[in-house]
Amino acid sequence: MIELTQTAMDAVASPPLVPGDRPIDLVHLSRMTLGDRSLEREVLTLFARQMALLIDRIETATPPIAAASAHTLRGSAKGIGAFALANAAARLEEAATSGDARRRRESVDDLRAACRDAGAEIAELLSPA
């Protein structure tokens, strides 16, 4: 029989049902990186690059490409605990597949704002102490 320590169980526990107010849930990020601070920094750096690439692609893409890019961003955002950004990406994905151009534009604006918030949080987390 395999016995798990409390630390191991905490590391794989589910994210909170109601995420905090910060753009990135630091408890979730720590859980996903098993508390490894250097891995957190690496993951945040990669996410920031991906986020910048995808938001630029989303703004100029056809609806199917925008939806696929929003879906990718949504999954990555959930992985690091950027739940508000993930929700904005989900709304854009839905708007892009619905064919409603006005709703898509509004969703892109909302996603861009969520990306700005997450990007500012990441910059703060990555800055030397």
Rank of each mutant, 00 (worst) to 15 (best):
G119I: 03
L46V: 13
A77W: 02
T97K: 12
V12N: 01
T97G: 02
R22P: 01
I80S: 08
R31K: 15
A82I: 07
P15C: 01
Q6S: 11
H28W: 15
L17G: 08
P64Y: 02
L17E: 14
A8L: 12
R103W: 00
V108K: 07
L39A: 13
S98P: 06
R22S: 15
M51K: 11
S30W: 10
S76W: 04
R116D: 12
A118I: 01
A61Q: 02
R37G: 04
A89W: 03
F83V: 10
A90K: 13
A52H: 11
A8D: 13
A118C: 13
H28N: 06
L34I: 08
D110Q: 13
L111V: 10
A114K: 08
A70N: 07
P128D: 02
N87K: 11
Q6P: 07
E40L: 03
A48Y: 00
D21C: 01
I122M: 09
H71Y: 03
T33K: 01
A67L: 07
R112A: 09
A77P: 12
K78Y: 07
L4R: 13
D56R: 09
I58C: 09
H28G: 01
R103P: 00
D109T: 10
R103H: 08
A113G: 09
P64N: 04
D109C: 00
L17H: 01
L34G: 06
T72W: 03
S127L: 14
V18D: 11
A70G: 12
S76P: 05
N87T: 05
A13K: 13
L34D: 03
L111W: 06
S38N: 07
P63Q: 10
I65N: 01
A95E: 07
S127M: 15
E42G: 09
A101C: 05
T45P: 05
T62A: 15
A113D: 07
A120E: 14
E106Y: 02
S30R: 15
Q50S: 13
A101H: 12
R41S: 14
T97Y: 01
V108F: 04
S14L: 11
S30E: 07
R49Y: 00
V108E: 12
S127A: 15
I24Y: 09
E59F: 00
A101G: 08
V18Q: 11
E121W: 08
L54T: 05
L125G: 00
A84L: 06
A90H: 14
A67S: 15
D117G: 12
A129V: 15
D25T: 10
V18M: 07
R74N: 10
E94F: 04
E3A: 03
P128W: 02
A101S: 15
T72M: 09
G75E: 14
I55P: 01
T7L: 12
A88L: 06
N87C: 02
